[in-house]
């Protein structure tokens, strides 16, 4: 079984190689938050489908989307037959792939389509067209993959690219970590606006998020910069100034959660 990652073997080259080898079977591509299948029969691409949540795309639109995937594990299972045909095969497929590839080349979307889209925290004034505005109103809180699995993939990708470039939208990892209960520990020193957690807990969060993050104090509804500190398991280190500001004192229990 042929397996690998699109980061090393881009989708158009992979499909081209399978077509040239005259293979029959199913190419499964499984990035997080997406499920994609491409069926070949005797070297001809006869069916492509992409699904995420309740939405799906088939045929050429699915191929357009898959060309934009920069990294995702794939596996080719030989001799698996398609449920039905959505593509005509022949030269139309390589041509479509080439066209989609050139369209994606000009776009800079985050490589991880699991990232969620949101309006920026510090907004600035931007001028948007009707199309961009229409998209903007529908994407808040959704993952990039969810937005793109819709008719008009390349158009949507172009609009998203524009919105991200203009700063009208930002893409951040969707953090779904449970709140942690910590005891407040005073840290003596000048400054404010920084919280400290044990380096073990910080590392755990950093590995899960893989992006810069802040800390949200759930009971106070306050976000604060967070840094690792050795030997304070179960504690939330807060500078004296912040203790006063947040009306907290030593030993208070606070629920915190990292936020991007």
């Amino acid at each position: 079984m042929l397996a690998g990652n699109l980061a090393e073997f881009p989708f158009p080259s992979l499909v081209g190689a399978l077509m040239n080898a005259g293979r029959t079977g199913r190419l499964r591509i499984t990035p997080l938050f997406l499920e994609a299948e491409v069926y070949l029969q005797g070297g001809q691409v006869v069916h492509a489908a992409v699904r995420t949540g309740g939405r799906s795309l088939e045929g050429e639109e699915a191929l357009d989307l898959l060309v934009g995937l920069k990294r995702a594990p794939f596996a080719f299972e030989p001799e698996v037959l398609p449920p039905h045909a959505t593509l005509l095969g022949g030269l139309a497929v390589p041509a479509r792939l080439a066209q989609a590839q050139s369209a994606w080349e000009g776009l800079a979307l985050p490589p991880d389509w699991g990232y969620a889209l949101r309006l920026p925290r510090e907004g600035k004034e931007v001028e948007l067209g009707a199309e961009s505005l229409g998209v903007l109103t529908q994407v808040e809180g959704k993952r990039i993959a969810e937005v793109l699995v819709a008719p008009g993939v390349l158009r949507l990708a172009r609009v998203l690219h524009t919105l991200l470039q203009m700063g009208a939208l930002e893409a951040v990892p969707k953090v779904d970590l449970p709140p942690t209960e910590l005891l407040v520990l005073p840290i003596y020193g000048a400054g404010s606006g920084v919280a400290y957690v044990d380096e073990g807990l910080y590392g755990e969060w950093a590995r899960a998020i893989r992006h810069a993050f802040r800390l949200k104090l759930l009971d106070k509804e306050v976000g604060i910069e967070v840094r690792p500190r050795p030997q304070i398991p179960g504690r939330l280190g807060l500078l004296e100034e912040d203790l006063r500001r947040l009306r907290l004192r030593r030993g208070d229990r606070v629920r915190v959660v990292p936020e991007v």
Binding site: P186, Y188, P233, G234, R250, G251
Partner: peptide
């Protein structure tokens, strides 16, 4: 102030170690 905060003020967390 710090002496009281770090000792008598920390009595309610007497059962919690730093590991």
């Amino acid at each position: 102030r710090v002496t009281f905060s770090e000792t008598f003020g920390a009595l309610r967390e007497r059962a919690y170690a730093f590991g």
